[in-house]
Amino acid sequence: MSVAGEGGAAGEREQPEPQAGAEERSGTHLFALCLTPEPGKEVKEVEETIEEMLIRLDEFCGMTDMIRSDTSQLLDEAIPLIKVKVMEMNNIYTKVDKLEAFVKMVGHHVSFLEEQVLQAEKTLGTFPHTVRKLLRSATIPLFRNKHTSLPQHMYDLPKLYRTEDYFPINYVGTKYQNR
């Protein structure tokens, strides 16, 4: 018995008695583990953020590709059409400029002829020629003798423009154009 008792006593001595500091350390460690989130949760959040950023990057790349294709379509299709329209408009502008010059020239001729008509009216009187003929043929001698003393002037028409020179018969837009 004594051997067993001694061995039993010796076995009790070999087990270390728990110290108060070790228990506190293991409790603190457990408490710290409870407060920190799981490492798997953080990894999932990072992966989700990366996935969202990759989706946004794909959307951005898609938009830039769409812009590039629209730009190339614009350069290939729309710009040549715009150039053709610009050339057509330049032709129209040229015609409008020529028409403005024509109208200005006609205006000068009209004012010249109007001045000549006013001068002729002053010279020959304000009565038109047909009224004077009627008065001459009347039996009243007062009117007959009054205008017989005026000398007869022949009017020479000044050389003016010819509309056909500016707008030929086969000109586009005229009613006489060749069909």
Results as ranks from 00 to 15, higher is better:
Y155N: 08
M87Y: 08
G125P: 00
L150W: 10
V3E: 15
V110H: 02
K104G: 04
E12C: 01
E121S: 07
H29W: 06
V86Q: 07
K83I: 08
P168C: 04
G11P: 00
Y166S: 05
V110P: 00
E42M: 12
G21V: 11
E17H: 02
M105F: 03
I67M: 06
E6M: 14
G62M: 05
S149F: 04
C61P: 02
Q19P: 00
L142C: 09
L99E: 07
G7P: 06
V86L: 08
E6D: 13
G173P: 04
K44I: 12
N91R: 09
N145A: 12
R56T: 13
S26H: 01
E38Q: 06
K104S: 09
I82Y: 02
K146C: 12
M154G: 12
N170E: 12
V46K: 09
K104N: 06
R144W: 03
E48C: 00
T28Y: 03
F127E: 15
V46Q: 10
T36A: 06
E24R: 00
P141L: 05
E38H: 03
A78H: 01
H108V: 07
L54M: 09
D58I: 05
M63D: 11
Y171W: 10
N90F: 01
T64C: 01
K175S: 08
H153F: 11
K146T: 15
G107L: 00
E24S: 03
Q116E: 11
A20Q: 11
L75S: 13
A120Y: 01
E23V: 04
H108S: 12
G107Q: 06
F112I: 05
K44R: 11
L142D: 15
R179C: 12
N90H: 08
A32M: 09
I169V: 10
A22K: 05
V172T: 14
Q116L: 03
